[in-house]
């Protein structure tokens, strides 16, 4: 099962997309299908970002080092869903008009932060391979990948700024993200034993690279 777990998690991560596909096929996307798809892909982008961010705390606190095997895949799924999220907006909201999109990015602050969150994920997706870790070196790679914190914060603010009056759902995300970030803060503030210096990862241990 350990061997099969990765493909299985991979399939599970496609669940939200399959759900949308099924709804589209059976005509049950509701009265406003495009809004439904935008919201679903936006929600799952944020959920995958938060799951990715919870890997390190969970594996440390529960002493389950193997969890890190799924981290890259989960992060890439966050990227996958935000690409879909953005494509819907590009094609169906703005009909490919770069001019309109740019106007939106400049004018609407919820789009501004969402767009920033999206842009930040691009270098992370690009450098998620073993080759890039080697090329950048563990430390620099880690530093770069801390962008995920900023991206998740941008995602939550994006959501907070787009709701009309009911802030319950974005606040749930905000609370979860705060807990995950607080963990990093605690770890960072705690005096470190010298032995715990960041070890440079060999290419072979790519998936074990540790970012806190």
């Amino acid at each position: 099962m350990v061997r099969w777990s990765k493909p299985l998690v991979f399939l599970a991560c496609l669940g939200p997309l399959a759900g949308l596909g099924w709804r589209a096929y059976s005509g049950s996307l509701g009265a406003n299908p495009i809004e439904r798809i935008t919201h679903t892909t936006g929600d799952w982008t944020l959920i995958f970002l938060l799951i990715t961010l919870s890997i390190t705390p969970v594996r440390k606190l529960a002493r389950q080092p193997w969890l890190v095997r799924y981290r890259r895949m989960l992060g890439l799924f966050a990227f996958f869903y935000v690409v879909l999220h953005f494509l819907i907006y590009l094609v169906l909201d703005k009909s490919f008009s770069m001019h309109d999109i740019w106007a939106d990015v400049l004018k609407r602050r919820f789009i501004t932060v969402g767009f920033a969150g999206f842009l930040m994920l691009i270098p992370l997706a690009v450098t998620s391979t073993a080759g890039w870790i080697r090329r950048l070196g563990g430390k620099r790679w880690q530093a770069l990948h801390r962008l995920i914190y900023a991206s998740a914060i941008a995602g939550v603010i994006h959501y907070l700024w787009l709701v009309k009056a009911d802030k319950r759902k974005p606040l749930v995300y905000a609370v979860v993200l705060s807990v995950l970030l607080a963990y990093r803060l605690v770890v960072w503030l705690r005096p470190k034993p010298r032995a715990a210096k960041v070890q440079l990862p060999a290419a072979a241990e790519v998936t074990e690279v540790s970012t806190n």
């Binding site: 099962m1 777990s5 709804r23 679903t40 193997w66």
Partner: peptide, 29 residues
């Protein structure tokens, strides 16, 4: 090894449950 398997299984089940939420809602409009 079973313990690891169990934990991996739990992770998968968790992910599947999340994914299932999306699917389950989809098939009962």
């Amino acid at each position: 090894l079973n313990r690891r398997r169990f934990l991996a299984g739990t992770a998968i089940a968790g992910a599947a449950a999340l994914a299932g939420l999306e699917l389950g809602e989809a098939v009962s409009p």
